[in-house]
Design a protein around this nucleic acid. Structure first.
Lengths: 224, 224
DNA sequence: CCGCGTCTTGACGAGATCCTTACGGGCGGC
DNA sequence: GCCGCCCGTAAGGATCTCGTCAAGACGCGG
């Protein structure tokens, strides 16, 4: 099922949306500020964003800009009735649709389904395979032979960054920044730990890695 | 050419930076306060921001936070020598690099180029080949024939600087500054040491170099 | 409330890497 | 021929990095 990011500063609206969407089988993440929204969106890569325009920190328009800088995921905007111009600005910035508050849950769900439907046809399915395992980047799944391999969220993020750069060296700082955030740039022991776990789960001989290689002092490299 | 935003409250520093950058073909905008910086950055969308941490109105850290809320553009921080903790706070907030005041213009330009290079993905063709080996600058990998050659971090940095300037003479000072930092400008024995190791790994006849040539008293030159 | 999976934190030995120091050789000037 | 300068080479120890283990903290669902 699809993954949706809810961005709203009012807790009761967030909870209402989250429970309704979860009940219908969506995976839901939440953010209560624009800054958090951009951070979470970059990390979890939702299939769609529901964005309230009235946020405490940065303008909702800027959130749309920030998202459109690197992704084409559908953005569904919530706006108060009086913010007609803000709504137009959001659409100009690249939002896909809007719902005026107060809104009915049925209407929102219908527009959400429509936005997802429009988005999926152009969807590509990146899939990386080796002799020993397969990584499905779209489904966020790893299979080894015929059996599925369970990765924890953090393990998956590390694998994803490495697999998206096949053959290229990914510096320790880049990994730490993309998975944990910039303030963890010196915690290289996290990398040692999680690379060890990933190798235990995916490498044929964990003590002698073949796919997830360490370049001492520089970073890590995934070689298919 | 790239567009750079200079943020500093001291007019003479702003002017020095601006004229130097303009002379090298950059487009330059200026801001003298954090608030103005955020406003201008949102409007002109620079490719890079040079940010002095000591600003009159809001803390430089807040400027970094404000920018990181909606953009991933490289942020190069200027900090006084005594503000060690402010510097790490800026890096934690998502700044990309820092330069300590007082700084040499050469060093700042080098770090600025490096930051822009990291930010623009796959723009150029970063692959340099000779009859005996190949250097893949994007993947940070060196192959000799069919086998990969392992370079230590320092060795790689030296090779990178030389290979990015094919045929051109790279002075000892430039090499020392870009690899070890500006305070190592007299330690020419490091260069002799690492050039010897690089030649052992890459030259067909290490004692008679063909690609990594020494220009006595001047510097080194990579000739493909 | 408890149990479970996950994430964080600390510590350690083995090995690689880096820095330091020293010595010899080529080359040009005196 | 002697000397100083610069470069190449070698070897030692200091330092850093990696992989690994273990234990505590945290969050979530039952």
């Amino acid at each position: 099922m699809s993954r949706v990011l809810i961005v709203d500063d009012e807790p009761q609206i967030r909870r209402a949306l989250t429970t309704n969407l979860r009940a219908r089988g969506y995976e839901v993440d939440e953010a209560q500020s624009g800054e958090e929204a951009l951070r979470v969106a970059a990390r979890v890569r939702p299939d769609l964003v529901v964005l309230d325009l009235g946020l405490p920190d940065i303008d909702g328009i800027e959130v749309v800009h920030g998202l459109r800088g690197w992704t084409q995921m559908p953005i569904l905007v919530l706006s108060a009735r009086e913010d007609e111009d803000a709504k137009v600005a959001a659409l100009d910035a690249g939002a896909d649709d809007y719902v005026t508050k107060p809104f009915g849950m049925d209407e929102l769900l219908a527009r959400l389904r429509a936005a997802l439907r429009r988005a999926t046809p152009a969807e590509e399915e990146p899939m990386v395979s080796t002799d020993d395992f397969t990584v499905d980047l779209a489904a966020k799944r790893v299979t080894r032979g015929t059996k599925a391999v369970h990765l924890t969220p953090t393990e998956w993020q590390v694998v994803e960054v490495l697999v998206r750069n096949p053959g290229k060296l990914v510096s320790q700082q880049q990994l730490l920044r993309e998975v944990w955030g910039p303030q963890y740039r010196t915690e290289t022991n996290y990398l040692r730990l999680y690379l060890a776990q990933i190798r235990r789960k995916l490498e044929p001989v964990p003590s002698r890695p073949r796919y997830f290689l360490t370049e001492p002092g520089m970073g890590y490299r995934f070689t298919p």
